[in-house]
C-alpha cells in the first residue's frame, strides 16, 4: 500500500478527469414523501437527500437498505420530486457488474399503498471499472414510494446516495 501527498488542486483535477460509469434507465418515464422532514435540503436548488449509506450486494434482490422484504420501500415521501438520482461506487478491485431495478407505488392520504405490489419502472446493469463512480437517473417522478433493488453475482459493498430534485420557479 502506498500513498502520495497531493494538493487540493491536484485532487480536484483528478476527480474531474476521472471517468464516470453511468447507466441510464431509458424506460423510466417516476419518486417518496413522509421522510420530508428528515431530508436536508440544498437550498436553493431544492434537492433533497432521500437516502445515503452502504449496501451489501449479493445474489438476492436487495433494497439499498439491505432488506429483501419486497413490501418495504427504500425511500418514501417522494411526491414532490420530478426525478431521482442514484449515485455511488462499489468497493473492491474487480470490475463492477451490479444489476439494479426500480419499483414504485403510490399511497393514499393515510400513507397506505393503493394496493399490493409495485410498478416496475425500469432496470439496468451497472458495469464500470473498479473504483469508479456511477450514476443512474430515474426520470419518472411524483410516485410516493420507491424501492431500489440491487444484486450482484459477486458480493460487493456499494456506497451510494439517492437524491431527488424538485423543479423551481423563478419569480
Amino acid at each position: 500500500m502506498s500513498a502520495e501527498r497531493i494538493t487540493r488542486r491536484e485532487m480536484l483535477k483528478r476527480l474531474i478527469v476521472a471517468p464516470i460509469g453511468a447507466a441510464a434507465l431509458v424506460t423510466l418515464p417516476v419518486r417518496e414523501a413522509s421522510a420530508a422532514a428528515l431530508q436536508p435540503y440544498y437550498e436553493p436548488y431544492f434537492v433533497a437527500v432521500l437516502w445515503e449509506g452502504r449496501t451489501r450486494c449479493d445474489s438476492l434482490w436487495r433494497s439499498l437498505k439491505g432488506d429483501v422484504v419486497a413490501i418495504l420501500p427504500t425511500v418514501q415521501g417522494a411526491t414532490p420530486y420530478d426525478r431521482l438520482y442514484w449515485t455511488g461506487y462499489a468497493l473492491g478491485s474487480a470490475p463492477v457488474n451490479v444489476n439494479m431495478r426500480v419499483l414504485a407505488r403510490a399511497v393514499d392520504h393515510n400513507g397506505v399503498p393503493l394496493g399490493n405490489g409495485w410498478r416496475s419502472i425500469g432496470q439496468a446493469t451497472i458495469q464500470t471499472p473498479p473504483q469508479r463512480w456511477f450514476r443512474v437517473e430515474i426520470p419518472e417522478g411524483h410516485w410516493d414510494e420507491y424501492r431500489i433493488e440491487v444484486r450482484s453475482a459477486t458480493p460487493r459493498l456499494v456506497y451510494s446516495r439517492v437524491i431527488a430534485s424538485q423543479g423551481y420557479w423563478k419569480e
Binding site: 436553493p44 436548488y45 431544492f46 411526491t79 414532490p80 420530478d82 411524483h142 424538485q166 423543479g167 423551481y168 420557479w169 423563478k170 419569480e171
Partner: peptide
Amino acid sequence: VANARPVSA
C-alpha cells in the same frame, strides 16, 4: 438563486 421557489405537487 434569488426570487425562486420550489414547484410543489
